[in-house]
Amino acid sequence: MENCNMKRGFFFLRDCDYPAHQSCSSCGKSFCNEHLRLKPGISAPFCLDCLGKTMQQSIQGKDKGVSTRDNYDDYYYDTAWCYGYRSNYYSSGSYKPWYFGSVNADDSDFNDSDIRVFDAASESDDPDAEAFDPEANVFDS
C-alpha cells in the first residue's frame, strides 16, 4: 500500500509513515486520514497542504469580508493552519526547511535549498565558470 505523501513538520520536514487512505481532490496525491480534511462548502477531501494554502489565501483576502475566514474557523486553530502558514513562510524566501530529524526523509528528493544553487544567477561569477546557455554542452564527451 502506498504511504501518505505528506511531509510533516515545520523547521524539519519528515515523511509521514502512515499508509495512504484517500486522494486529495485538489492535487490528486494520496494521504492518510490525519492529513486529510473535508473542505468547507464542498465537503470534498483536501490534503492539509492544499487546504492550508486555500485558508491562507482567504486570510489574505480578509478585507473583502470576514465570512471567508469564518468558513475555516474549525481549521484555523488546527494543524491545517500550520500547513498553509509554512507554505507561505517557505515561499517568502526567509527559510528553507531541513530534511533531518528522528525520522529520515527521502534525501534523494531535491529541496528548495538544492534547487536554488542551480539558478542562472547563482552560477559562479568566476569568468572560468559557465553561465546558462541552452546551447552550451557541459557533458560533451
Partner: peptide, 17 residues
Amino acid sequence: LRDFVVPVVNLIGQDTV
C-alpha cells in the same frame, strides 16, 4: 491567546516528537 499562543504551540508542535 488566540493570535499568538495557539499558532506558536501549533507550529512548534509540528516539530516535537
